[in-house]
Write a protein that binds this DNA or RNA. Structure first.
Length: 113
DNA sequence: AGTTTGACTGGAG
DNA sequence: CCTCCAGCCAAAC
């Protein structure tokens, strides 16, 4: 008896991808959110890595504000040096450590503007 | 069908 | 603050 959700069915994977892209598109300028939060909101709490995979390999993600997605530590994506400047241009402040000041800019889906 | 690979996370050193 | 490690899980090899 399967008591845990099986691996995503193709449709669930499709749904997950759509939800992720939809959520990312809603992040307000000057705010950031994390992979884990997005995954949880999409219904798959432990799929943070999948969120990253989606943003990196899905064509069309470039038109979304995916630069507003950082990890829990407030660190920007590896191999993408442009992310920090993009955020700073929107007013996102970085700590001396090079991390985003999450306490000040973290945004969560559904949050009232 | 088994192994490796990450735009992750949380904890340890 | 840094790196390393274990757990994580779909996708790519």
């Amino acid at each position: 008896m399967k008591d845990y959700a099986d691996k995503m069915t193709p449709q669930q994977a499709r749904q997950f991808r759509d939800d992720v892209l939809n959520i990312v598109g809603q992040i307000p300028p000057g705010r950031v959110t994390t992979y884990g939060i997005i995954a949880a909101w999409a219904g798959w709490p432990s799929h943070s890595r999948m969120v990253g995979r989606t943003l990196r390999y899905t064509p069309g993600a470039e038109q979304l504000p995916c630069h507003r997605v950082v990890n829990m530590a407030g660190r920007t994506a590896p191999g993408w040096s442009q992310q920090r400047p993009l955020l700073q241009a929107e007013g996102v402040s970085f700590k001396p450590s090079g991390h985003v000041d999450m306490q000040q800019h973290l945004w969560q889906p559904g949050e009232v503007k």
